Amino acid sequence: MMTTDSGGEADREIMVSRAVRAPRELVFEAFTEVRHLARWWGPEGFTTTTRSFDFRVGGVWDFVMHGPDGTDYQEWITWTEIAPPERIALEHGESRDDPNAFASLLTFEPAGEETRIMMRTVFPTKELRDEAVEKYHAIEGGEQTLSHLAAYVAELASKTTRNGAES
Rank of each mutant, 00 (worst) to 15 (best):
F55S: 05
S158L: 12
M1E: 05
V122Y: 00
G141E: 09
V57Q: 11
G70F: 15
P68M: 10
D62G: 00
D97G: 01
A138H: 03
I14F: 01
E75F: 04
T80P: 10
D130E: 14
L128P: 04
R116A: 01
D69S: 09
P68E: 13
S158Y: 04
T3C: 03
V122D: 01
G45R: 13
F63N: 02
H36D: 13
W61T: 07
I14T: 06
V27K: 00
E33A: 05
R24P: 06
G67N: 09
A103Q: 13
R18T: 06
P124Q: 05
A138W: 01
S167P: 00
V27D: 02
K135R: 14
A10R: 12
K135G: 04
R96N: 10
E134Y: 08
E131H: 13
M118L: 12
K135S: 07
A154N: 07
E109D: 15
D62E: 03
A111Y: 01
T145K: 03
E140Y: 02
A103F: 08
E127G: 11
H66P: 01
R35I: 14
T160E: 14
R129T: 02
W79L: 06
R51F: 02
L105H: 05
L106R: 02
S95N: 14
E91K: 11
K159M: 15
L26T: 11
T125V: 12
R162L: 15
F53S: 03
T107Q: 01
F108S: 02
G70A: 09
G164M: 13
M65E: 07
F53Y: 14
V34G: 06
I117V: 14
F53W: 09
F28C: 07
W79G: 00
T78G: 08
G42P: 12
L106M: 15
R116V: 15
G67K: 15
F102C: 06
F123R: 00
F63R: 04
E9P: 09
P110M: 01
V122P: 05
P110I: 00
T121H: 00
Y152T: 10
R120C: 10
M118K: 11
D97M: 01
R12L: 12
A83V: 11
V27F: 03
E44L: 08
E131N: 09
L128G: 02
I82M: 09
F31L: 07
G58A: 13
I117M: 07
K126V: 15
S17C: 06
V20Y: 00
Y136F: 13
A101C: 01
T145E: 06
K159Q: 14
S104Q: 11
R35V: 14
N100M: 01
S6R: 12
P110L: 00
P23T: 10
L105C: 13
T50D: 00
F102Q: 03
P85R: 07
W79V: 04
T161M: 06
P110R: 05
V20N: 00
V60E: 01
E33L: 09
H148R: 13
D130S: 04
A132H: 09
P110E: 11
E86A: 12
L106Y: 10
D54R: 15
G8M: 05
T4Y: 10
E44V: 07
P85A: 04
E155P: 00
E94K: 10
F53L: 04
T78E: 02
R18A: 07
T48C: 12
I139L: 11
I77G: 08
D97F: 03
